[in-house]
Simulated scan of single mutants.
Amino acid sequence: MPTVNELLFDELTAHAVDLQQYSEGVIRRMISLLNRADADLAAELAAALERMPADSFTVERLERLLGSVRELNAAAYASVSEALSGELQAFAAYEAGYQVNLYQSAIPAPVLVRYSIASVAPAQVYSAAMSRPFQGRLLKEWASHIEAERMTKIRNAIRIGYVEGKTASEIVRGIRGTKAAGYADGLLQRPRRDLMAVVQTAIGHTASVARDHFIDSNRDLIKAEVWRSTLDTKTSEPCRIRDGLKYDAQTHKPIGHKVQWLAGPGRIHWNCRSTSTPVTKSWRELGIPIDEISPSERASMDGQVPAETTFASWLQRQSAARQDQVLGPERGRLIREGGLKLPDLYSSSGRYLTLEELHERDAASFARIAA
């Protein structure tokens, strides 16, 4: 029978994987909103440039002609910001409820009689997440920053284009990109990547705030947090060095080491995938008389940190259904039947190999063995 802390570790690790998949869906929706607006922006930009032949180009005239383009750009990011705020508000409510439900399911009944799980108001989580900066700015400030940066890039590209003697259509194509490449080869691709980073970091930030508020509200039950990083080829050095380290639940002071908590998991850097798992107090630390708790409940409520593990070893001992959920059916099968390890599924740049690439890599290995 797993201990309470082992159970919490397993479920919160799985939840962190789910949140990564959730964030990818949110990113796609936000980028889709921006892409729809980009079609109108490109059309307006083309119309503005057609009204300004190269021989009449001046910076002042360009600024006047770009007025409608600026308005479309601002409207696009206002739409994305509003949609993301609504998404995060719903997500904050979900996370607040998830924490309560998980702990109520994991903590033995005799403990819950003495220490009921305190819930956190979703509005409080959302308000705190929106009012607390991540990577130096509030969420609304990040939206405004990317909007302004994108307009600056558009303006500079037009100026350079005129200097280089490009036509209006060539300038617009360079800014938006080509349909054949899915518009990923244009100047607007960089702001898309910036938005993707903001969305993923905002979700990690909101999840961290929800976790912080829940732990603070249940300080009588939780004594520490353990930093958990997804250890693969994409893991950053700040997260790799903190993986498995324990911190005080209230002050986040290091326990048994000197590595500082800093901004915490989920927001220590852009696109942070780290999270934390709790260490609950033992039944002795909670002051529960021995005759009020059974031997099995005493064993499960031991207050110990789960044995050191990595994401790869956690995944290895999960059910086939959960492995397939995390990796996909084919990769899950290869892990179970093909003797592959999690790092084998990644390229040197940290992305998942396609199945074709994976088969090519295996074929090369088999050829070397046969030789």
Rank of each mutant, 00 (worst) to 15 (best):
E6L: 01
L8F: 00
L12Y: 08
L19F: 07
L19V: 14
E24C: 10
I27C: 11
R28E: 13
L33W: 01
R36K: 10
A42N: 06
A48W: 05
E60I: 04
E60N: 07
E63Q: 11
L65Q: 13
S68W: 09
N73G: 10
A74E: 14
E82A: 15
E87S: 11
E95F: 02
E95D: 05
A106F: 02
I107H: 03
P108W: 06
Y115I: 09
A123V: 08
S127P: 00
R132T: 15
R132H: 05
P133F: 03
F134L: 00
Q135F: 08
E141N: 11
E141T: 12
W142L: 07
A148S: 13
A157M: 09
I160D: 11
V163G: 01
S169T: 15
G174Y: 01
T178G: 08
Q189A: 14
R192A: 09
R192V: 09
D194E: 11
M196H: 00
H205D: 06
D212M: 02
D220L: 13
E225G: 09
S229N: 06
T230W: 02
T230H: 09
T233F: 12
P238V: 11
D248K: 02
A249D: 05
H252F: 13
W270V: 11
N271R: 14
N271G: 08
P278M: 06
V279H: 05
T280P: 04
K281F: 02
S282C: 04
R284T: 09
R284V: 14
I293K: 04
M301K: 09
A307Q: 15
W314V: 06
R317Q: 14
Q318Y: 04
S319E: 10
G328L: 01
P329M: 01
I335Y: 08
L340K: 02
P343G: 05
Y346H: 08
S349D: 09
Y352P: 07
L355Y: 05
H359S: 14
R368F: 12
I369H: 14
